[in-house]
Computed example of a mutant assay.
Amino acid sequence: MTTPPVPEGLVESPTEDPTATKILDAALAEFTDFGIRRVSVDNIAARAGVHRTTVYRYFSTKAEILQASAVKWLHDTFSTIYDEIQTLPPDERVVEGFARAVGACYASPLTARVLGSDTDAGLRSLTVDAGPVIGMVSAVFVHWLWEGDESGSSEDAAGTAEVLVRLGLSFVLTPDSHFDMRSPDVRRDFARRYLLPLMTVL
């Protein structure tokens, strides 16, 4: 299977510039502590220890900072997961990749903030405006699950990965379920019972 390219920043570090990294780390901390709406560029600059004009040299708008910091969070989180699962057999990469990715979202204070006190802005970024995020994470899943597999097509892999991502996102957005997805063992069992058979027909 010829896999489509992984978006820049999701395998390689999204930035090696120390100032940009400092700004994005500060932005993630601000969004986690105060939510999306309440944070300004001035807040991020102060937390990063730089002038606001320095922030604007790297990012034109707060929306750009939000997008770039989200990519950094994805990179940092998924790189750790990938290191943990890359030597597993393909089926187990599906199981562990799904279980650990959903678990990382549940455990993240940023997720709790966005879906808790910052509901309106957070839900829009993860529903109506979630297309780019779904596309990026789907491409990462393709890289995780089918790297080096020359059978099939990249379209099949991309479609299957998107189904996995959308299912995972639905459980993050609505954790109350017949499945106790807060449990790692339940997430693994769900993946084995429902996702692996699904992949054979996609």
Rank of each mutant, 00 (worst) to 15 (best):
A161V: 00
D156I: 04
A130G: 05
T174Q: 12
P175F: 13
F34H: 15
F59T: 05
M181K: 02
G116M: 06
E8V: 04
V201G: 03
F141H: 06
E150M: 03
T127H: 05
V39N: 13
L110P: 05
M1C: 08
P5Y: 03
S177R: 00
T77N: 11
A107V: 00
M181G: 09
R166M: 06
M181P: 14
F98A: 02
V41A: 14
A104M: 14
L28C: 07
V142M: 10
L10S: 04
M1W: 06
A112K: 15
D33L: 10
T80V: 15
M136H: 10
P109D: 12
G35F: 11
L66F: 15
V95A: 14
E155D: 12
A46Y: 14
R187C: 11
V71E: 15
V201F: 08
F78R: 01
D17Y: 04
L115M: 01
A27I: 00
R57C: 12
L10A: 04
D91T: 10
R113I: 00
A158V: 04
K72G: 09
A45V: 04
V137D: 11
D33S: 13
E30Q: 15
E155Y: 08
V39C: 11
D149H: 05
P14C: 05
F190C: 05
C105M: 13
G148N: 10
E12A: 08
P89W: 02
L24A: 09
K62E: 15
L123R: 12
K72Q: 15
A139R: 06
R113S: 06
E64G: 14
